[in-house]
């Protein structure tokens, strides 16, 4: 019978949103099949950190400060030992930047099949179906190894899982896994002025070349903050230097999975649309009625973003006031 280990990513003493979703989803799926789940989290935690985790099983917590900013090598040593000790057949990792680096390293160490970004996200499917070639091909992959590693994004987890059960947390001694001279250390993290990561946003307002300049993004900032979302950008806007690369959505940027994506002045190159395949509803604003972005949109407005967006901000405010 399958036994899963969920890697819980810790940020500033809290469990990352992606990890919370991942844990609860695994609990739900495992409960249906009568399977068991354990978790691991490293670094000091706030007292309320595990409050959103439901279900059964044990969460191993290593308190060491060094695990707040762990290297893949260190995490890999700890997790592979836990996998061996617990006899895990599945490891589930949230598809954050850190998770995506850890998963293949761990797969190599454990000789495990890595299944990343599977559409549907079931732990019990025989095949992993995932998009390749900029989302234009859906390919199926069959895991061949006895241990599987699942790398899962947020898009597969909108339904929240509630249970009266709570996992119990036990302290984990990570000291045997530290080595005196680590060859790679993560020294510091300079917070990106606490802006919400676009990969985790439910609403994204993104701008492209049609915005006309860096200053015009103020409009999108205003709209995003009004809606409780974040601002993204197309490759051309990033290449123009209007936005940092961390805001870029698409093939050479981030794949996003918001409920609502508002594309402003983005023509819609296939490389950009590739990053949107998991967005639920897409709105496009563009002055060119033949822009390819409209082919991938649910709603469209033809017009200059510099006129449409301020008017839209006004209309949203009006609607919210009536509420």
């Amino acid at each position: 019978m399958a036994h899963y280990l969920v890697f819980l990513e810790q940020r500033g003493g809290c469990i990352s949103k992606v990890s919370v979703d991942t844990w609860n989803r695994v609990q739900q799926q495992a409960a249906q099949e009568g399977e068991s789940v354990s978790g691991f989290v490293g670094g000091p935690l706030k007292p309320t950190a595990l409050g959103e985790l439901y279900g059964n099983g044990t969460i191993y917590h290593a308190q060491d400060e060094a695990l707040s900013l762990p290297s893949e090598t260190l995490l890999c040593r700890i997790l592979s030992a836990l996998v061996a000790e617990e006899g895990c057949t599945g490891i589930v990792i949230g598809a954050t930047a850190a998770g995506r680096r850890l998963a293949p390293y761990l797969a190599e160490t454990l000789h495990a099949s890595l299944l990343g970004g599977c559409a549907g996200g079931s732990l019990h499917s025989e095949l992993c179906r995932r998009y390749i070639y900029s989302g234009l091909v859906l390919a199926a992959y069959r895991p061949e190894a006895s241990i599987r590693i699942f790398l899962q994004g947020r898009e597969q987890s909108r339904r929240s899982f509630f249970s009266t059960d709570r996992p119990h947390c036990v302290s984990f001694d990570a000291s045997p896994f530290f080595v005196p001279h680590e060859n790679l250390l993560i020294r510091s993290v300079t917070s990106g002025n606490s802006r919400k990561s676009i990969a985790e946003s439910a609403i994204i307002v993104a701008g492209g070349r049609g915005m006309g300049g860096k200053d015009q993004f103020v409009l999108l900032e205003e709209l995003a903050s009004l809606l409780g979302g974040s601002v993204g950008a197309s490759r051309s806007a990033v290449d123009e230097g209007w936005r940092p690369h961390s805001d870029q959505i698409g093939q050479t940027g981030k794949a996003v999975a918001p409920d609502l994506y508002i594309a402003c002045g983005i023509s819609g190159a296939v490389q950009h649309l590739a990053g949107l395949s998991s967005a639920r509803t897409v709105v496009a604003v563009n002055s060119d009625p033949h822009a390819p972005v409209f082919d991938a949109a649910d709603y469209g407005i033809v017009g200059d973003v510099r006129e449409v967006i301020p008017a839209f901000i006004g209309a949203v405010k009006e609607v919210l006031q009536k509420k």
Binding site: R11, S16, A97, A98, R187, N193
Partner: peptide, 10 residues
């Protein structure tokens, strides 16, 4: 670029 901001590595 990490999930939380810029990371420095040695």
């Amino acid at each position: 670029e990490g999930d939380d901001g810029l990371e420095t590595l040695e």
